[in-house]
Design a binder for these strands. Structure first.
Length: 114
DNA sequence: CTCTTGACTGAGG
DNA sequence: GCCTCAGCCAAGA
């Protein structure tokens, strides 16, 4: 199952995003880093674009600043924000407040069950 | 096959 | 802290 990098990329991205605990968020970079390509954060975003047809909570993925950069890819104008706020995350100006507190690192998944 | 674009990030000024 | 540039890899035209 070595294969070439690429096929696993999407699969891992989806797998990780699905594992994001409710009320938590992570960054494209964190996911990319977990996969093994910390510089391929863009690919994570590209994968998310295709995740629309899957059951992936892509709204829990934001950029490193905590900005909802991908909100434009959701239905409506503020669906992403509503979903996050519904999970207890406070957002202002498209930016997650207390971002560090809501941040979930994929690596903590293997380190501890949380 | 080549070129452009993209839900990003880190480094440099 | 803000702005700009380059790198990253894949998909679409």
């Amino acid at each position: 199952m070595k294969d070439k990098k690429g096929h696993n990329f999407y699969s891992k991205v989806y797998e990780i995003v699905r594992l994001i605990p409710l009320g938590k968020v992570t960054t494209y970079g964190a996911i990319a880093n977990f996969i093994g390509s910390p510089r391929s954060s863009k690919m994570v975003g590209w994968a998310m674009n295709a995740s629309h047809k899957l059951n992936i909570p892509s709204h829990r993925v934001v950029n490193r600043k905590g900005l909802l950069t991908g909100k434009h890819h959701f239905q409506g104008s503020n669906l992403m924000q509503q979903l996050l706020e519904n999970e207890g995350i406070k957002i202002e100006e498209n930016k997650i407040q207390n971002f560090n507190n809501h941040f979930w690192d994929p690596n903590s998944m293997i380190d501890r069950k949380n």
